[in-house]
């Protein structure tokens, strides 16, 4: 058993609402603590949003994945409240996957939005509330597609 095997197990868990994007790529992983003598692992994660309804499911998936690692008999997940998630925690791969596959974009530092479909800068906010706690809704007048925005 190696700590990197535990990391790989955590990275194999995908977000329940983006079924092909790893929670590690989304920046949810804070730390992994492996106790080889006790054959146990503790995984600290940060939620994108407090009150995210997927937390119990993600924790369960992570525990199940870590338990498949040879040499690990017990696994626990804790949600850190002292770390704040923001979109900077996402990997480039995750940002690109969200843009190309899910039409989800990130707000630039200057507040502007780029359309993930046509690349236009003319995207305008429509609604603070999207289908999920972590996303708002915008509209691209150039290619006429709704665009969702990851909220930081």
């Amino acid at each position: 058993m190696s700590p990197s095997a535990v990391h790989d197990a955590v990275a194999s868990v995908n977000d329940p609402e983006y079924p092909d994007v790893s929670i590690v790529d989304l920046g949810l992983l804070v730390s992994i603590d492996v106790d080889e003598a006790n054959r146990s692992a503790t995984v600290d994660l940060v939620p994108t949003f407090t009150g995210c309804p997927a937390l119990a499911m993600i924790a369960g998936d992570v525990e199940a994945a870590v338990l498949t690692v040879e040499g690990i008999d017990s696994a626990s997940v804790s949600w850190r409240r002292d770390v704040v998630w923001d979109t900077d925690r996402m990997s480039f791969a995750a940002k690109r996957r969200l843009a190309t596959d899910y039409t989800v974009t990130l707000r630039r530092k200057d507040g502007t939005l780029r359309c993930p479909v046509c690349g236009s800068d003319a995207v305008t906010d429509q609604s603070m509330a999207g289908p999920s706690r972590c996303r708002s809704v915008a509209w691209c007048p150039s290619c006429r597609n709704p665009v969702e925005v990851m909220r930081a």
């Binding site: 995210c52 309804p53 429509q126 289908p131 999920s132 709704p146």
Partner: peptide, 23 residues
């Protein structure tokens, strides 16, 4: 926990309706 799930599902469905009405 179930209230939280139903809150989230409500937001999902209304959000989906919103996107679909835009299209």
């Amino acid at each position: 926990r179930l209230k939280q799930i139903f809150l989230a599902k409500t937001q999902d469905e209304i959000g989906h309706a919103h996107l679909l009405y835009m299209v």
